[in-house]
Design a protein around this nucleic acid. Sequence first.
DNA 1: TATGAAAGTTTTAAATA
DNA 2: TATTTAAAACTTTCATA
Lengths: 153, 153
Amino acid sequence: MAVRIDDLDRKILVELQADGGQSLDDIAKSVGSSKTPVWNRIRKMRDAGVIKHQTYLLDAEALGFEACFFVLIRTSEHDASWQQAFLKALQDRPEVQEAHRLAGDIDYILKVRVKNARAYDTFYQALISEVKVHNVTALLSMEEIKSTTSLPL
Amino acid sequence: MAVRIDDLDRKILVELQADGGQSLDDIAKSVGSSKTPVWNRIRKMRDAGVIKHQTYLLDAEALGFEACFFVLIRTSEHDASWQQAFLKALQDRPEVQEAHRLAGDIDYILKVRVKNARAYDTFYQALISEVKVHNVTALLSMEEIKSTTSLPL
DNA sequence: TATGAAAGTTTTAAATA
DNA sequence: TATTTAAAACTTTCATA
C-alpha cells in the first residue's frame, strides 16, 4: 500500500497538514515551486488516496465535550461474528473517535469523546448490552497535553 | 469555556467536519440557509475559537507509517519541574500525535505513530533517557478499526 | 438576511522547456 | 515528462440595501 512520494510532494503535504486553508500560490511559494505543478501533485495524491480528507478541527471543550476516555477492552470471544458485531457497534457510535485492535492481552483500545461522565456511562451500558466483553478499563483524561493529526513527514 | 451555539451553527459545523472542501454555497444549501449568514457564522465561530484549524488528513499506511502504539506511562515523579520536562519532551517529538494526563493509577497515555517497531524503540530510548518514568507499557495497534476527528454534534 | 460587485482562487488548456 | 503562462469558471469577502 506504500506510495512513492518525492521531496516536493512531501513538502506539499507538510504545508497541507500545517494549514489546510492556504492558497495554491502560498503553498507553491513555501515549497519553491509554482501553482500548476503543486495543483497536479495534490490531485495525484488525492487520487492515490494519500490525501484522504479535508476537514476543520473543532475545539471539543468549547462545544461542551468535556470528557475523554481511553477504554481498554479484553474479550473472551474471538470468532468472526462477534468481531463483526463489535465493529459495527463501534462504527455506529459517533462518540467513538478511534478504535484499534491490539496485539497482546488487551484486545482493543477506544478513544471516546462525550459531554460528561454520565454520557460515558450511557455509552458504556449500551455497548456492553450489544456485545459481550470480558473486561473493560476506562482511563479518564484530565488534560489533553498534545493533540495533532499531522504525520511526522 | 463553553460557547453558545444554535441549531444552524451546529449544522454548519457538521458540514465543515464532514467535508472541509465544500463551497459556502454548498454548505448553505445543505443547512437550508444562504451564503452570507453561513459566512458570518463561520467567521464568528472561528473568532470564538470553536473552529480551530483547517487541515488535510493523510493516509498513514500509504506514507509508510505502519506502526501505531498506545503507550501507558506511570511515573513516581509528580513535581512541577519533572512535569514540565516531560511535557516539553512530548511537544518536541512529532511522532507523538496525542498525549493525555490521566486520572487513576496510569499517569499518562500517548499515541505514537512511527514507520516501524525499530523507530518506536528509538523513540522510547530517547524519551526515557530524557525524563525518568517508573513504568511503561506499549500497546501495539494491529488494525485501525475506526478513526475520525469529528465530534458527535 | 439578501443581493451583487470586487478581489482572489481553482481549474483547465495551450505553449514551452 | 514536468513546468510556465494564460484565461475561464468559480468562491470568498464585504459593502450596501
